[in-house]
Structure formats: C-alpha cells, structure tokens
Design a protein around this nucleic acid. Structure first.
Length: 466
RNA sequence: GGUGCCAUCGCCAAGUGGUAAGGCCGCAGCCUGCAAAGCUGCUAUCCCCAGUUCAAAUCUGGGUGGCACCUCCA
C-alpha cells in the first residue's frame, strides 16, 4: 500500500508501526451547524481509506473526533437560548444520519472534547512544566512556538514571513505572534469549564493532540498514530499546532503519514462559511440519491480539488447505474465468494494512494466483459459466479452497489405511481401480444410522462426512473 | 506580500522518462416490432517557448492562465 504523505510530499510505501495494525486519526466536525459537501468528501475519503486498509489485511483503529466545545457552539447556544449540549447533540445526530445515507461507516472511536478535558489538562500541564507553554496575566495559556525548533516543519512556512504577514491581531500578552492558545480564560460569565488553569475553554488545536494521546497513542511508539488525516485547509495552522503540541508535550511525534483531502467547490466557487454558499449535505440528499453522491464525490482522486456541478454528477450517476444494471441482470443468484484477478487488480489500484480513476476503469472493463459474455453465452455459470463475487467485492471495498438494484432504479417513486406503472405495463403487454404496436407505443409514451422509462427483456418488462 | 498546487479530447479524469487508461456526450453498426438496456467500432500528442535525453505529457529554465493556504473552515 502506498500513501502520499502531504508533509514529505511524496508517495511512500505504507508501513505501520505495529505489524498488521493501523491507527488512523481524522479531524472531525465541529458540531454547531449542518454538514456540507466538504464534510461529506472528507468522511468519504477516510471511509474509503479504512476499507482499503482492511482489504489489505490490516486491523484498523479509526478515530474521528467530535468537537463539541467551541466559541461558535456557545454563540449559537446563546442565540437560540439553548444549552450547548442541546446544540451539539442535535448536530451530532444529524451528522451521523447524513453520513450513513452516503454509506460512511462509523469510526471505531468518536471522542468528544467534553469527554477529553482530563487529557487536555494533562497535556497542557506537561507543556507548561517543560517550558513549552506559558500563562499570561489574563489567565490564558499559550503554546510558545519559539520553544519548538521544529515549528513550521509540517507546513514548511517561513517564520519571519509569518510574523510580518500575520493578519491576526497579535495579543500583547503573547510572546510570539504565532503562539496559539491552549487554554482561554473566560471571565464574562458565559459557558466555561473548570480547569487547573482557571475557568475557561480549551483552544481548538489542543483537543486533537490530547484525544490522540488518550485514545490511540502507543506509549513507546515513535509516532502517536500511523496516519493523521483531514481537509487540506487544516495543514496550517491546525495540524502544525497539533504536531508541535504532541512533539513537545509527549515522547513521540504525532503521525508517521499525513493525508489531506482536496476541497469541494460549487460551480467553480469556493464553499465557505464566510461566503455563505455552503451546500449542505441534507439539501443535496433531498435532490440526489445518497449513493450517487457517494460515488460522485469519490469519483475524483481525493487530493484533487473537486468542483461539484450537476452535469458531472449526472455523468457519475450513469457510471454507477452500470454497476446496478449488471447487478440487476444477475439478480436472485447466490452470491459468489471466489477471489478473482479483477479483485486483485482493483485492490492494487486502490492501494496506490487510492487511485480511484484506475479503479473505476477496471470496474468498467469488468462490467463490459461480463455483459458481453452474458450477451453471447447467457448460461456461463463460472462467469456468473465470478461476476457476483466481483460485485460483492466492489460493495465491500468501495461501498458501491449496496442496494437492491430494482429499488435503486426506482427510488423516489411513490407507491401510487408504482401501482399505476404496473397497470400500464400490463396493458402494454396485452397490446404487444396482439401486435397492436400503436397502442403499446402510446402506453410507453404515457409511462414516460411519469418520468419512467421501460425496457423489454426476455424476463419481462422492467422500468426505471429516468 | 509569503508559501504551495494545478494546466491532458466538447465535459469529467488517470498516467510523472519509453512512445496518450477510463467515463459522459457525439457518430456509425449489432440486437429490438420500434425503443430502452447491452455489445462493437470511430474521435486528443498532452497551455506556450527553450533546454536535457537515444527517448518527455512526464525532467530543467522562462512565460501565460487558473486555484489554494497564510482568518473560522473538511
């Protein structure tokens, strides 16, 4: 398995620290708003990664945190006159539900900031004790970036430039403008947490380092986790700061491999909170099938920026349709389990830094070959068994083709319409029997008005939503 | 201003030194009562210029054009 390490900027052969076992940590959502397509993309990418790692025989421990302490959460709670727990539980539940609808499995661990404060205190205290952090007169605790000779080694930025160009107003209490808060004291009477450093709230960066120590890190390992992932925007400052905290506050570095997924743009425009053009997953799910969204968002390499638009989505849907058409063709047959060359090649492609393009090309070739053989030798038993096994493998490793193929093509059609279609198809069959093609074609046109296309096969007439 | 990324057929998109995968769209054909689905065939020399090399889309230098991060962000 090869992984592109976004810190070393090269593709590296993946070797876990513990043979056969992989620890993966991914920065999860701050639960104060609905998940947008960018959250979906990130979740999908690392869902795919865990599937591929498992297919390679690794036992994977995948942790994705839930940030449930944050100024934005508190602001929202105050605005809506709710507790932060009401806010975070609502959005956490929505997040889980929406992720499930695009086929994202739950991580093994989902640590929450509110449940990891003890680990944060321990880490902050260690940083203070080792002179990597300092308290200000206001009661804040800052990480001293000048104490870490390797600071900026992740993002390869230049310190002087950072300071000169730093757009954040630097607090006079900070020693260096790049220093970031580990603990923010709060004295305005709003929501706070008690800590050895006084009442306040943790800084954002510290929670990930602390949770990794608490839930994943091996005590004597060189790296706390094998792989650390997240969106491309997190490399700096978030991951830079996480890495600094762990490096200085523990006896190991944070991660051996760093993976950052590209951004999702909407019709060529960056999607961001400040621009207010977020495309929420829940809205996308009202219009598009969850699995189509999954396929579409995964159909481009994870590191590339992704431009979401209707035309490409429809093009991706047609590609997914082909998987389901083949599945439909073999519907009802017992699932095969034999390993095939195709599966070997598919895993090889995916194991090359998740090369999805090559993987999809292999799938298309497999589908074409299967269809071709079924066209010419419909009773080819061995081919059928292998194809079913291949389709099962695609489900397992990529999460494509999980549904009943008939339901997939008919999703979104209500029962009344279904009954009507069935009736019309019956009438058309009667007309066809007596070769009254004028009537049968008229009925087909009528069915089309419902947005339904039909196809005559030796097994009878089937219909699909167009 | 700093740092980094990218530029491949109408569209999406692999390939990163050995002579351009795949999908969508389009055209032609097979199949079909006709369709749909499926199958077959056809469609690019890789932004521009210069260089290195027996050989470059792939490496180097210079342009041009996009984009991202440096601020909450996946």
């Amino acid at each position: 398995m090869y992984i592109f390490d976004s810190v070393q900027k090269i593709k590296r052969l993946f070797t876990p620290q513990n043979e056969g076992k992989v620890s993966l940590y991914v920065c999860g959502p701050t639960v104060y708003d609905d998940a947008h397509l960018g959250h979906a993309k990130s979740a999908l990418v690392f869902d795919l990664l865990t599937r591929v790692l498992k297919a390679n025989g690794y036992a994977v421990t995948y942790a994705r945190n839930i940030t449930d302490i944050d100024d934005k959460i508190i602001k929202k709670a105050q605005e809506q006159n709710k507790t932060i727990k009401e806010i975070t539980e609502f959005y956490t539940e929505a997040f889980h539900k929406e992720m499930q609808s695009i086929g994202v499995s739950r991580p093994d661990l989902e640590p929450k900031a509110t449940e990891s404060l003890d680990a944060m205190f321990t880490l902050i205290q260690k940083l203070i004790d080792s002179n990597h952090a300092y308290k200000t007169e206001d009661g804040d605790v800052y990480f001293d970036t000048s104490s870490d000779s390797e600071y900026l080694s992740l993002s390869k930025r230049v310190q002087e430039e950072e300071e000169k160009q730093n757009r954040v107003e630097s607090s006079s209490a900070k020693k260096n403008s790049a220093d970031f808060a580990l603990w923010k004291s709060v004295k305005d009477g709003s929501i706070t947490f008690d800590s050895p450093f006084g009442a306040g709230r943790p800084g954002w960066h510290v929670e990930c380092s602390a949770m990794i120590e608490k839930h994943l890190a091996l005590p004597h390992a060189k790296f706390a986790v094998d792989i650390h992932g997240g969106g491309a925007d997190l490399l700096f400052p978030h991951h830079e700061n996480e890495a600094a905290q762990t490096r200085c506050g523990t006896n190991h570095a944070l991660a051996n491999y760093w993976m950052h997924n590209g951004f999702v743009n909407i019709d060529g425009e960056k999607m961001s909170k400040s621009l207010g053009n977020s495309f929420f997953l829940k809205d996308a799910l009202k219009v598009y099938d969850g699995e189509v969204l999954r396929f579409y968002l995964l159909s481009t390499h994870y590191r590339s920026n992704f431009n979401f638009n209707e035309e490409d989505l429809q093009s991706a849907k047609k590609r997914l349709d082909k998987i389901y058409r083949l599945k439909k063709r073999l519907f009802g047959l017992a699932c095969g389990t034999e390993k095939t060359l195709f599966q070997e090649e598919l895993l090889k492609a995916l194991s090359d830094d998740l090369n999805i393009s090559n993987s999809l090309a292999l799938i298309d070739a497999m589908i074409t070959h299967a269809n071709e053989t079924l066209d010419t030798a419909g009773k080819h038993k061995e081919l059928k068994a292998q194809t079913l096994s291949n389709l099962g493998y695609i489900e397992e490793v990529l999460g494509f083709g999980m549904k009943n193929p008939f339901e997939y093509f008919q999703s979104g059609v209500d029962e009344t319409t279904k009954a009507k279609i069935t009736e019309l198809i019956f009438q058309r069959d009667e007309a066809k029997k007596i070769k009254d093609f004028i009537t049968s074609d008229r009925i087909r046109d009528e069915i089309l008005l419902y947005g339904i296309g039909i196809m005559d096969t030796p097994q009878g007439t089937f219909w699909e939503k167009v």
